[in-house]
């Protein structure tokens, strides 16, 4: 049986070769875009950012107190609820599925680092390091968003990297600057990237 290689080799022109390479690139690009989780909520991100600003104002500088921790844990809970509702609304508006391999991949990439954050929070609190939690939370959230962002729209992994950078800086800076880093990360970055996503990716 004659193969395509044997059959085509004597007369192939560079144009046909280029055409084949273009087609393969088109297939690769289309497959990559089709595998993205696009129901990331931009407006939900903005709301989460506003919640973080409110929490920063109420909680003030980090301290080893239950009140400071309680305010931020309550804010995290409210932010999760906001995010989930925003994802559901965006998915419904754009007729996007909220099940299947794409969503599963995105969730599996996102969740482990958030689980690590829960464990580390307990450890930091136990050892009296509550005031150092901003760096820990920013790093873990950044890691979660960066890995989830590998399966999502382009701005998401960039947002994750920005969170990681802020988290690293928060550990270097004095502990009582922690609330500024929380505001810059969970507040400003969420709002900034939320606006970018809302404008360019349908809400």
């Amino acid at each position: 049986m004659i193969s395509v290689t044997q059959m085509a080799q004597p007369s192939l022109s560079p144009r046909l070769h280029e055409h084949a390479a273009e087609n393969l690139q088109f297939i690769r690009d289309t497959m990559a875009r089709a595998a993205d989780f696009t129901a990331v909520p931009g407006l939900g991100g903005v709301l989460m950012g506003l919640l973080a600003f409110a929490a920063t104002f109420v909680a003030g500088p980090p301290s080893n107190t239950r009140a400071w921790l309680g305010i931020w844990l309550a804010t995290a809970g409210a932010a999760v609820v906001t995010g989930v509702i925003a994802i559901q609304r965006k998915a419904r508006r754009h007729n996007l599925p909220l099940s299947g391999p794409v969503v599963r991949r995105f969730a599996l990439a996102l969740v482990p680092a958030l689980g690590v954050a829960v464990v580390l929070t307990a450890v930091f609190v136990q050892y009296g390091l509550t005031a150092r939690l901003p760096g820990c939370w920013l790093l873990c959230y950044g890691a979660a968003v960066t890995s989830g962002g590998a399966f999502s729209v382009r701005p998401v992994p960039f947002m994750g990297v920005a969170f990681i950078a802020l988290g690293a800086l928060a550990f270097v800076a004095p502990a009582d600057w922690g609330h500024f880093f929380m505001a810059a990360g969970f507040g400003a970055l969420h709002i900034l990237f939320g606006i970018v996503i809302a404008r360019n990716y349908g809400g």
Binding site: F26, I27, T30, A34, A35, N95, V102
Partner: peptide, 16 residues
Amino acid sequence: LGIVSALAANERLTFN
């Protein structure tokens, strides 16, 4: 080719 490629990467896709 785009339709087939997209569906090869994503099990199910809506018309939209």
